[in-house]
């Protein structure tokens, strides 16, 4: 056990946890906007997959990681608008239509990959940007401040999202529409417009999450996300629809995963326990968040299409 507490291992465990958390955090923050406004989007994983492929392919062809991220934004925006059209304009059953978007993303990303790329080729990853000053703090600096800009940006989005949701008129409208769309409608807030905006934000962040994942790994493969989009949706629930809670969930999930990997590598978790230990991140995250989030209530209009009676 003592070897786990060696400096190098601890640094690797924490830094690894942060890396694992970032795609989940981005996707879950986006989903938080949608759910706060009453739209449940289960298609996150499909958007992530297409964003991942788009980002990967762009970097493969053009060699610029930031262009790859921009393509992730674009793909996310298009799929976000499509999702909004299905959920808001058509008022479809959100759970099932989300699964449709997921299957579309899963199949389409694989199809495009087979046709356009074929055999996986490695691509460039995001450059690491040690933050001046902070990164030279012993231990902590290496854990927290020697990541890529995407990592810092993802965490910066947490306070920004909290602020947007709680302190701006847009955020107030999101909360109102998610709780009582009839009431919001009665004072002239366009429920559809608010929900389009949040689902668009959700799509963009899911697309970015996928692109960031593929570019960070430097590779694409069929079903690259391995259902991370669904974990992101779950994190929104367990994070009690609050950006900070969502961040806590994503970090916890990433950290437990990373620590379990370290403990397995060092043989502290015996190999016979390996498969059970693989479930630990999900179980621990769910338990912890359920304990914390029990007292919060979901947005009252979540997953309910709004149709004004005429």
């Amino acid at each position: 056990m003592s070897q786990f507490f060696s400096q190098a291992i601890l640094i690797a465990a924490v830094a690894g946890g942060i890396r694992l958390a970032v795609p989940l955090l981005l996707a879950a923050l986006g989903e938080t906007y949608g759910q706060r406004s009453g739209v449940l989007n289960l298609g996150v994983d499909g958007v992530m997959l297409l964003g991942a492929f788009g980002g990967y392919f762009t970097v493969l062809e053009l060699g610029n990681v930031w262009l790859g991220l921009v393509v992730g934004v674009g793909i996310g925006a298009i799929l976000g608008l499509a999702t909004a059209f299905i959920s808001v304009t058509l008022g479809a059953e959100q759970g099932i239509s989300g699964i449709g978007v997921y299957l579309f993303g899963l199949g389409m990303s694989d199809l495009l990959f087979q046709k356009l790329v074929g055999t996986p080729l490695p691509i460039e990853s995001f450059p690491k940007v040690p933050l001046p000053g902070l990164s030279s703090i012993p231990v902590v600096g290496e854990m927290l401040f020697q990541h890529s800009l995407v990592v810092y940006a993802a965490f910066l989005l947490v306070p920004i999202s909290t602020f947007v949701i709680n302190r701006t008129t847009f955020g107030m409208n999101i909360r109102a529409v998610g709780e009582n769309p009839e009431a919001a409608d009665s004072v002239g807030i366009s429920v559809a417009r608010v929900r389009y905006a949040t689902v668009l934000i959700g799509g963009i962040l899911a697309g970015v999450a996928g692109a960031a994942l593929a570019i960070d790994l430097g590779i694409f493969q069929q079903n690259l996300t391995n259902a991370q989009g669904f974990i992101a949706v779950a994190l929104v629930y367990f994070g009690a629809w609050r950006p900070l809670g969502v961040m806590g969930g994503a970090l916890l999930y990433g950290m437990v995963n990373s620590i379990v990997l370290q403990l397995k590598t060092l043989g502290i978790i015996p190999r016979s326990w390996s498969d059970i230990a693989a479930m630990a991140p999900a179980v621990i995250t769910i338990l912890a968040l359920v304990l914390v989030a029990r007292r919060f209530r979901q947005p009252a209009a979540l997953a309910k299409p709004f149709v004004r009676e005429t």
Binding site: M172, R175, N180, A184, V187, R297
Partner: peptide
């Protein structure tokens, strides 16, 4: 036509 989870002021300002 009130949003239960919002404050009085937020409901009025909505």
């Amino acid at each position: 036509m009130l949003v239960d989870t919002l404050t009085v002021a937020e409901n009025v300002a909505m």
